[in-house]
Each structure stands twice: as C-alpha cells, then as structure tokens.
Design a protein around this nucleic acid. Structure first.
Lengths: 217, 217
DNA sequence: GTTGACTTTCAACGTTTGTTGAATTTAATT
DNA sequence: AATTAAATTCAACAAACGTTGAAAGTCAAC
C-alpha cells in the first residue's frame, strides 16, 4: 500500500456533502435543515453531525471542498498568461478571461456538483451575513493576485476605481452563476440562463470595456 | 373629513414592517423568525400574523411597500429624459443614469429604511428561490420600459446581447447595494462599501461602456 | 478470534418554530 | 351610554429544529 494512501473514504460522507451542496445552493444556510440533508443523501440524521461537528461545520466543509481546486485553476491560468506575455504583461481582456474561463473548463458547467457550488458561492457572495467574511476567507488571496495583474495592465489607474471595477465584475459574475431564471423571464425565453458559454463570451468584453473606460489614461 | 381619508393607520403595523425589513435584509427569509420581528418591533408575537396572515405575507408586504414608490421614481426619470431628448431618443449613459439615480435621490441613501430595502432586494435578486419569481413580479414592467429605451439607443443591437448586458448591470447593482463589506476588506479599507455616490459615479460609465462595446455597430 | 478504532444507527433531549382560537382592550359610530 | 368592529394580547398547540449519548455495526490489524 502506498505510504500516502488515504484511509478508505466512506461513500456516505461524500453523499452528505453533495446533498448539502445542492440544498444550500438552492435554499441558503437557514433554509436547509439537517433532516433535509439526511433525507436527500439517504443517510441517518445523526451522521452529518458526526462527520462535520454541527450544521455550520457542514456548511464550511461544503464551501471548502472545491475552493482549492477552483483557486488553483484560476492561478494556473494567470501564471500561464504571465509567462507567455511580453514585458508589459498580459492585457485586461486576457486577465479577465483567465479569471472567468476556469468556471467553464474541465466540464465544470456540465457537472451538477460544480454547478451547485457556483450557485452556492453566488448566494454567499451577495449575502449580508456571509458575504464579507467567507469570500475573503476562501478567495481573497487569488483575487489579490488578479488585482495586481490588473494594476500592471492599467498602470495609470486610481486604485479606488480599480476596486470598484472588480466589484462590478464580481456582481455580474455572481448573478450570472446564481441561475435565478430572471433573464429567461425578462427576455420571454429568448435568453437561457443556463447558457454559461454565451454569458462568458459576453461578460469578458463587457467587463473589459468597463475597466478600460474607468482606469485607462 | 375628506372623502378619501384613510382609516387611522396604527403605528404598530408600520413598526412591524420596519423591523421585518431590517431583519429580512440581513438574515434572509429563513433566517428570521416571527419572534425576532415581534421583539425588534416591540410588539406582541401574534400581531404580525394578524396583520399579514403569515410569515410569507409579511415578507411580501415588506417587498411591496416601497416597490411602487421606487418604480414610479424610475419611470419619472425615464419619461423626463424622453421628453427632453431629440428624435433619436436619450443616450445609453442617460438611460443608465435614470435607472440608477433614483436610488440615491431624495435622501434614500441616508434613510435606513430604504437602505435596508435595497439590501433586501439585492438578496432576493440573487437568490435561487425568490430571484426569478419576485423580481419579475415587482419590477419587470419598469425594467421592460428601460429595455425598450436601450433598444432605441442601440438600434443595431442583437436582443440577446442586450439582455445579457442588462443582466450584468443588474448583478453589479445588486452586489453594490448588498453592502456585504467585501470591497472594504479586499481594498484594506481604501474603498468604503457605504459610499454609494462613489459607486454610482463609477457604475454609470462602467456599464455604459459595456453596453456600447457589445451592442453598438 | 479478539481487540480496537471508526462508522452508522437509534431514540430521545430540550428549544424554537409558525400559527391560531379565545379573551381583552381600543376606538369610532350610533 | 350602548354597540360594533378593529386591534391587541394571552396561552397554547403540534411540528420541526439541532444536537447528543449510548448502542450496534463494520472492518482491518494482530
């Protein structure tokens, strides 16, 4: 047996995480009960508390599970960009693209698990109760590296402008991945909120134009 | 007594609405109990159910109370714009401005009630459970008029592009008024999320540039 | 086959939840 | 002053909540 082999991870623990992920994404922390999770995962009620301590521990475990994978994917895209760029560094479009593309790559958009995870992050990000704390905790280091790259691409920018621009990007991204169905209704079905590729292709130029308008010259 | 005089509205009913507004904004529908509302409003527990039927009725009443005022303010701004514009109609910047400015005007930004209300709408808008339904119900007619104006200002636009652009605007707006404190932490205090005027002054050019980039020519 | 650590189940705990029917108070009308 | 409707309080309900201690099960190591 290889020295770093993990103990056999029981299936049930992951089933709990999957079920909690989907439920928290749709109903939020307070809208989900431990019994809903247990029923959905087809697992005994007490098992979630055993594995994760309490409800909050389960919530954190769900958030943490995919955070590192996502952060790494984003950082890899940024590093690759930097290594291929000239002395001036990558362009605004390229940086925004590196920030967004990992959410579509590797079949994430077709994987229900990742889909629920992004919905959950969207909900957390715009929640007064969790938004500031949790997003900072899990995603700040990566976001700061992207901010640095943007500062280099827009050397004359006022930092305040730059932060607001990122904030607008974050908001657009958040609502898009929340999958509320609002755009479907507003457009009478012309636009599908599930069309993440269509959203991505438009978000990159939309946001890049905004950054340049405010932060260039 | 004037013929259209309203019956004397008891103070308590409004106190309940105010308390519920603040609490729902911070903790969401499921994060608030009827007892929290009653305690905060300093009112008997049963009174909220008496006035609004049940918890959901209270939630709807909170959302509805300021919806019409807000919608009217936005429509007035749009109508005024149209009447002053030439035959080509108002510009993209002017339309976006008319969409956003009512949220700052009339002291709304300093009124805790309105502030909580916008926080609540932000939370509703990005929630999977309520986002599609409630936003459509309360705000669609107004949004559609703004979309029409934007179509006129961007006559060559593909409607799909236009809807996505509005979606990005809606997301940026939502996160900004959610007041999560995230931008404060990310910027190490350089940017204050309470600075709605600063956000407004940057959102208008940011979003307008995005609309033009995608929808012009 | 026994041990021992981990996993899972069971049953129950004390709270808190939303809601309601009946009683009481308030305020306007007759 | 009597009447009536609305507003408010009180007490309590059944249901659902998160959590936990003890029992039962599982499985590899010895």
């Amino acid at each position: 047996m290889p020295e770093n082999a993990k103990k056999t991870v029981p299936k049930r623990k992951d089933r709990i995480l999957d079920a909690a992920e989907a439920l928290f994404a749709k109903h939020g922390f307070d809208g989900v009960s431990m019994r809903m999770v247990a029923d959905s995962a087809e697992v005994d009620l007490a098992l979630s508390s055993y594995h994760f301590g309490n409800k909050r521990g389960l919530f954190d475990a769900v958030l943490m599970r995919r955070a590192e994978v996502w952060n790494t994917a984003r950082l890899d895209a940024l590093e690759k960009l930097k290594s291929e760029a000239g002395t001036n560094g990558p362009s605004v479009e390229e940086i925004i693209d590196a920030f967004l593309r990992p959410m579509l790559a590797n079949g994430y958009q077709d994987d229900p698990g990742w889909r629920h995870y992004f919905e959950l992050v969207a909900q957390v990000n715009s929640s007064f109760e969790w938004g500031g704390q949790l997003m900072t905790k899990y995603f700040d280091p990566v976001v700061r590296k992207f901010m640095d790259a943007l500062k280099q691409a827009l050397p004359d920018a006022d930092p305040v402008d730059l932060y607001w621009c990122y904030h607008f990007l974050s908001g657009a991204l958040t609502l898009t991945f929340a999958h509320t169905g609002r755009i479907d209704q507003l457009s009478d079905g012309v636009v599908k909120s599930e069309d993440m590729l269509g959203a991505y292709e438009r978000m990159v130029p939309f946001v890049s134009a905004g950054f340049k308008k405010l932060c260039e010259k």
